[in-house]
Design a protein around this nucleic acid. Structure first.
Length: 837
DNA sequence: GGACAAAGCATTTTT
DNA sequence: TGCTTTGTCC
């Protein structure tokens, strides 16, 4: 075993003195005390206790908005400031990379100095860092590839096809879910094989799928997301000396969002907080690892102190294996643990908190906990029931414009929804209303086919064993290497015990046509040439740095040029290929940014970063746009104004959750998380009908809505009586579009007869063209329709109006229109459903 | 081996 | 409804 110095923290391994630092202890203690007062000033008694408590284990039960990030950052700062720990002895686990970056900034701001050497990262990033360093020990290349869900799917699809497993009902998705579940429980193939029921053909088949899947990842030197955690646990268990390096180094471990940890993550924390036995300490000492000052009377290094922060009411990842018991049973797992409860909320108004409390109190089997604030009731929650998803979206857009008009910045506004599919209606209306918005997560840039192609080139260069990547680019762009040729190379590789890549280099011996053979060898040469660019100079190798290696952007540029990837897209007849070419160029620009921001970083670093970005990492605080995201992505964030959309049965709670044990309770927590993101304004909206699979179906208000006391919600248009009569009667509508009827008058669930007439039972069953604000699926194009102030226009939804002003350029020209009955609107001239009169 | 058309299927949430 | 997969023809 080799002991490696931490490159970004040379003092970390050898000189970290821990609590018994002699030199520093000479400094006057009073300075430390003054500093610690500074770090606890302005905290409430519970927060202060959470910052100051010292002991082996601390559980901070932190309700939403109770200042837990503040407590965590102050706690870290106080450990460092009080000379109790070096920055390098801190390991803090956050849920997203963005949260990690923020936490680092805040700690450094508190300390007034850079605190390099702290590990603040996500579980996955921390594990990758450990695994790349220790890859050899578990027979893995340090340039291993990280496979995402799509990669897993591709592989499983191939396996299932080869095994004809679909006849037994296996799908890539089902196998993927099962494998993920097993890995999260730290059950590998061999463990599974021991417990398999050999009489059940389903079990036997699944075992074979699992086996092959594992073997292919191994052969490709690749790990999936779940492996990153479980392999680190296996590494620590199999190599106590390797584990000891990290157990010795990290003296203070802090885990945020502990309620969403799964069993594997829990096991990892257990391994990291284990004490180092005296005999292992002695061995470390022999290898020159500094242990002086860290050992106790028995010669062991005691386990690191553990701080976890969580709120079981915000556990929303059970589907991903998160085990709520990790937090519920913390006191049992870590005897003598101290528990601090943070209930005072500093984020939201009392009305919002009362709604949240009312909803979550319907979950039984939870410790009673009530959020409260000293900041007053604030405004009531606004409710709205749209006729359709588009109508609902229009309400959201109108309210956002009103908020913006009242001085709320777009970036302080967020719209949440349960499923990604709900963005469609919202986007259509937002585009039309010329509202600046951004969808966070969803279909990501890196999931686009052309980007995956370009990335596959880079991966194939970084990890020559990665067959998946090579196969992806084998015929992209088209170079005449079809499935038959691909199979020929694969079987040639198998027969001669070569890797796919080696087989490509030896394509001469395949007996293929001269054209195809040349294409294969040229591609192999291109990849080899790019790989040669990655080798550092002798100086770099000697110093263990990346010096002399080409920059990521240069390697990508070389590959794009050599493969004619962009060139092919540019000369293609398909008009969409132009956009694809631009996307690849955008990727190139991103690698340039990466090179600039991370001098000396390698290609593998870039690939790692791309693999591990979370949806919330894309958020740009300075962006000046409204943020759209799923409720899951919203965790940990907060906004001045929050719109919760689609609060309907079947959507929230989602249909799929009904059959899962604990499903409805988890959905309620999801709603709770959404509510508690709002600081000042909360909007709840739903639609009475929603299109899915192209069919329009009737939607019912969510059961959770009725859990919020009436007096907290001000319905601008309420859901009516539909829920009271067994759902046989379509919902009545009690207000007109545009002019809000103040539906709350007779109680939130009341109806008004006058308006019932307009949308009677028979009317609502009429073709959907009758519905207000219907939006056609196709994007309109008004070409170069020119409008100027004073023009009269007609809009399919808003009727007639007068153009007041035209702003913007080209395709982004916006008409500000005063409609005769619908009020003032902003419209994107190019695509709005309007005609000039 | 590639281009195009028809058919079938899909949507829960994510590192 | 809209995308992906499969089938057919050149």
């Amino acid at each position: 075993m080799t002991l490696i110095l931490d490159p970004d923290d040379p003092t970390g391994w050898r000189e970290a003195p821990g609590a018994a630092d002699r030199e520093r202890a000479d400094e006057p203690r009073s300075a430390g005390h003054a500093a610690s007062d500074r770090l606890t000033a302005g905290l409430n008694p519970q927060q202060r206790e959470a910052v100051e408590y010292r002991g082996p284990a601390l559980l901070i039960v932190a309700g939403a908005g109770s200042g837990k990030t503040r407590v965590l950052t102050h706690r870290i700062a106080s450990l460092i400031d009080g000379r109790e720990a070096w920055p390098s002895q801190i390991l803090a686990i956050t849920f997203t990379n963005k949260a990690a970056a923020e936490m680092r900034e805040r700690v450094e701001a508190l300390l007034g100095e850079a605190a390099g050497g702290m590990w603040i990262s996500t579980f996955h990033s921390a594990c990758v860092r450990i695994l790349r360093r220790e890859a050899e020990a578990i027979g893995l290349s340090s340039t291993f590839t990280i496979y995402d869900s799509a990669d897993q799917r591709t592989i499983l699809k191939r396996i299932i096809k080869e095994l004809d497993a679909d006849t037994l009902g296996f799908t890539p998705a089902s196998a993927q879910a099962k494998i993920s579940k097993l890995k999260n429980e730290l059950s590998d193939v061999e463990t599974y094989a021991r417990n398999v029921n050999t009489n059940d053909p389903n079990d036997v088949m699944f075992l074979e799928i699992f086996r092959q899947y594992t073997r292919r990842l191994r052969d490709a030197s690749a790990l999936d997301f779940d492996d990153l955690i479980s392999e680190t646990v296996y590494l620590f268990r199999a190599f106590p000396k390797v584990a000891a390096l990290y157990q010795r180094r990290f003296r203070h471990i802090l885990v945020d969002e502990y309620q969403d940890t799964n069993h594997a993550q829990y096991a990892l924390i257990r391994e990291l907080t284990r004490a180092v036995e005296p005999d292992v300490v002695a061995e470390l000492d022999e290898h020159g690892v500094l242990v002086r000052g860290l050992t106790d009377a028995t010669g062991a290094i005691p386990g690191a102190s553990l701080t976890v922060v969580g709120d079981s009411d915000q556990s929303i990842y059970a589907f991903r294996g998160a085990d709520i018991r990790n937090i519920v049973e913390f006191e049992r797992d870590f005897p003598g643990a101290k528990v601090v409860l943070l209930e005072q909320n500093y984020r939201s108004t009392q009305n919002i908190l009362s709604a949240a409390n009312a909803v979550i109190s319907n979950n039984f089997d939870r410790k009673d906990k009530k959020l409260w604030t000293a900041d007053g009731d604030g405004e009531r929650i606004t409710g709205y029931t749209g006729y359709s998803a588009h109508d609902e979206a229009q309400f959201v857009a109108d309210e956002i414009e009103a908020l913006h008009g009242a001085g709320v910045a777009y970036r302080d506004i967020a719209v949440f929804y349960r499923t990604n599919a709900q963005t469609r209606a919202l986007e259509e209306i937002f585009v039309r209303s010329a509202l600046p918005y951004r969808v966070v997560g969803g279909t990501k840039f890196y999931e686009r086919a052309e980007i995956k192609d370009a990335m596959a080139y880079l991966i194939a260069v970084a990890n020559p064993l990665d067959e998946l990547a090579i196969r992806r680019i084998l015929n992209t762009p088209k170079r005449g290497i079809g499935p038959a040729t691909e199979t020929a190379i694969a079987s040639f590789a198998e027969q001669n015990d070569l890797s796919f890549r080696q087989a490509m280099r030896a394509a001469d011996g395949l007996g293929l046509g001269p054209k195809v053979t040349k294409a294969i060898i040229d591609l192999a040469k291109l990849l080899d040439a790019a790989a040669a660019m990655l080798v550092p100079s002798q100086k770099g190798i000697d110093e263990g740095t990346n010096e002399g290696a080409s920059k990521v952007s240069d390697v990508l540029a070389f590959l794009i040029e050599g493969s004619k990837l962009v060139e092919t897209l540019r000369t293609s007849r398909d008009p969409q290929d132009e956009t694809r070419a631009e996307n690849v160029e955008e990727l190139l620009a991103q690698t340039k940014d990466f090179d600039r921001e991370n001098p000396g970083a390698s290609l593998v670093d870039f690939l790692t970063q791309v693999s591990l970005v979370a949806a919330a990492d894309e958020l740009d605080d300075a962006s000046g746009t409204v943020s759209l995201m799923t409720l899951h992505t919203a965790k940990g964030l907060e906004y001045h104004a929050v719109f919760l959309t689609g609060i309907e049965e079947g959507l929230l709670p989602h249909q799929m959750s009904a059959s899962e044990p604990g499903g409805p309770a988890e959905e309620r927590r999801l709603f709770y998380v959404g509510i508690t993101r709002a600081r000042k304004r909360l909007y709840l909206s739903l639609a009475m009908s929603r299109a899915q699979f192209g069919e329009v179906s009737v939607a019912m208000p969510s059961r959770y809505l009725q859990e919020i006391p009436d007096e907290l919600i001000d319905w601008k248009q309420s859901p009516g009586m539909a829920t009271s009569r067994g759902g046989t009667q379509p919902r009545a509508l009690n207000a007109r579009r545009g002019g809000y009827g103040g539906g709350a008058g007779g109680g939130a669930w009341g109806t008004r007869d006058r308006d019932l007439e307009r949308f009677s039972v028979t009317k609502s069953a009429a073709p959907k063209t009758e519905w207000a604000n219907r939006v056609t699926g196709t994007v309109r194009d008004n070409g170069d329709l020119t409008l100027e102030a004073g023009d009269r226009i007609r809009h399919t939804d808003f009727g007639e109006g007068t153009v007041r002003q035209v702003t913007g350029e080209g395709t982004k020209r916006i008409a500000h229109v005063a409609f005769d009955s619908a009020g003032q609107k902003k419209l994107l001239i190019k695509i709005a459903p309007i005609e000039k009169l």
